[in-house]
Write a protein that binds this DNA or RNA. Structure first.
Lengths: 365, 365
DNA sequence: AACAGATTTTGAAGCGCTTCATCTGGATCA
DNA sequence: TGATCCAGATGAAGCGCTTCAAAATCTGTT
């Protein structure tokens, strides 16, 4: 356990290392950062001194001198939604490959926090920022970019093209979900939940609508909700469960797994069979969907891939001088489980086959 | 949208602001940090200049000059376990109250990452670190403390007393869970899952054992598992489900909600009734437990409170020169739901009443 | 009008590191 | 042998900010 031989109370600095190693300050810096530029002899002396002093580089000083730091920041919307956890992991895995550390900030669906964390990363002069913005508010993006900060948007981009982004085709996801239900023979659909102001939700609804229109003899009702939590799903299910047989929806699609879980719960509590009476499909492929009342069909956006791609793009923007902005839109995939297929994974109609399905249990629990 | 009037490509510095405002560098600094020390006139001039330049302070330079930064780091074990999400939120709420920002790092149950994030926060000279260590490895703690970094351990402390910590009484949690099952009349318990090397799990098992011993006519079998995921629960349930009636456990307690969910799933798939045939209780009160196959009884550690208390202690350590190290151990609470009480929240035996129960749905989903 | 005391402002000295122009000491070659 | 190179090492100039002693300005008194 190497002793801390620095004088005074302060942590040992490179100057201390230099003194102890009997070389100049610059040599220590080189030894630490570009060892190939330094003779084996000096390298050894420096290493020994570092060890002996328990020297830890001061990253504030390094960032200041170098002009920018090497860590990357990720501002997350909601750490409690496993999609974002997946994004964080994807980003981290990719960052790690090239020696960058990833620091997270959770805005918890709060616009103020979101902006303030953006500023914190900006003030820290991070190498780059990954940002999953909430609806509205992209002003922070412009602000930090004006300071030269590189930023890649993930999951939402408010339609801007002047900035790198990795998105999910929300409209297509809604389309897939509705087509799946229709393919199962469902004709009275319900689009359950979601504040319609959210871009993603509007898109998913539009996609569902497109499938309905294509099918012809299908109707789709829409009951929005203020939030995306499961109790809202319960309320919605309660509101339709009492209807006479011919009026009940026979297929429910929800823009969030949580709402779908609430719907399923409430339906089952009222004695209805899922999926026999009503098939239900969620959205996001949250980790808990395998544990839900009955395992839940859902639309999966590959969060890990989104995070990894976004980080790759960001790193390119950082390192490649002739980087060009690009927007990558990933296609979501159906993940079919009991809430639409039933306990035996009943053979499903032809139509679904073509709709691009992912294996049923992609996310290891 | 204020134009960036700085010369060259670089971001405007305080020097630029000073020049534009027609005051000295020091005055700008004061205006920004202790406005009460500066005349109204200068304050206005500085503010205008800041606005006009779109000036953003460089936190690297600030940390360097001031000797330490104002942000606090939290190294999390597993961002995918909602207990840690709760801890992060509690910590963040508390930090925010006193103007500190919280940056997260997710070690993803990887010792190497854990250490490396500790170092990153150390190198960044953060004001303090909150750390939820995995089993073993506390060497990082000593390392960063040697550099003067303040650190508070959360959820696990490896028995050290020389360092602030906020813990949960794991033994008592196990005791509560087992006592609850015993109180329901269960006599053949099964402690299902968990690598026994984990301190928390060993403790919970010990607590359960204590309840069993106290009760007298109760047995408890232990089947460990390598990980804490739901498929391990499935395996364990499968392994006992085929036993003849008298040999089947009638109460299963698991050291993780995930395993418990797997257990419940598998039991139900094999036609067994939960809780009638087997009552099941988990641990952690993860957010998904309300959505599980049947809503799950569990032992709740109040993550939000743990995070908030830990942050409060850390802030005291940062600000209060005669801070004394303290270890705070919180008592976990029972959260009783269907997986032990049945669908109607069947009246429960007297014994549980005294055992300190939390309201049934404390965590809003 | 002159002065002590309080209030503001100033300027300079770092904080610990990177970087770059310079300098050194061999090795290489004619 | 002396001129030429070149890998390595050096030292100093910042990076943008905080802080503090010293200077300047403003109060209220006498």
């Amino acid at each position: 356990m190497t002793a801390n031989t620095a004088h005074g109370g302060r942590a040992p600095s490179m100057q201390d290392v230099a003194r102890l190693a009997g070389v100049s300050l610059g040599t220590v810096s080189h030894a630490l950062n570009k060892p190939e530029k330094v003779s084996e002899r000096s390298l050894q002396k420096v290493r020994t001194a570092v060890e002996q002093l328990g020297f830890v580089p001061n990253s504030a000083a390094r960032s200041l001198a170098a002009g920018s730091s090497t860590t990357v920041g990720l501002v997350l919307t909601d750490i409690d939604n496993s999609l974002f956890v997946d994004i964080a992991r994807g980003a981290e895995d990719e960052a790690r490959k090239s020696g960058h550390a990833l620091l997270l900030a959770n805005s918890d669906i709060d616009l103020g926090r979101q902006e303030s964390y953006l500023d914190i990363f900006d003030e820290a002069r991070v190498a780059g920022i990954l940002f999953t913005p909430m609806n509205a508010s992209l002003e922070g993006v412009d602000r930090v970019r004006r300071h030269g900060r590189r930023i890649v948007l993930v999951n939402y981009a408010g339609g801007r093209q002047d900035c790198c982004a990795v998105l999910s085709d929300e409209e297509y996801g809604g389309y897939l979900a509705a087509r799946h239900l229709i393919g199962l023979g469902r004709r009275r659909l319900l689009f359950a939940g979601g504040p319609e102001e959210f871009y993603a939700i509007k898109e998913r609804r539009n996609g569902a609508l497109r499938a309905v229109t294509e099918a012809g003899n299908v109707t789709m009702e829409v009951i929005p909700s203020r939030r995306l939590k499961s109790d809202e799903g319960r309320k919605i299910a309660a509101a339709v469960a009492d209807r006479p047989a011919g009026q009940m929806p026979d297929g429910i699609l929800s823009p969030s797994d949580r709402i779908a879980a609430g719907v399923i719960h409430e339906l089952m509590a009222r004695g209805l069979q899922v999926p026999d009476d009503v098939a239900v499909i969620g959205y996001d492929n949250n980790h808990f969907t395998t544990e839900a009342a009955i395992s839940m069909s859902t639309v999966s956006q590959d969060g890990h891939l989104m995070g990894a791609e976004a980080m790759a793009i960001l790193l390119d923007e950082i390192r490649n001088p002739d980087h060009e902005h690009r927007v990558l839109t990933l296609k979501p995939q159906l993940v079919l489980r009991e809430s639409t297929l039933g306990p035996n994974g009943r053979p499903r109609p032809e139509e679904d086959r073509r709709a691009g399905m992912a294996p049923a249990n992609p996310a290891p629990l």
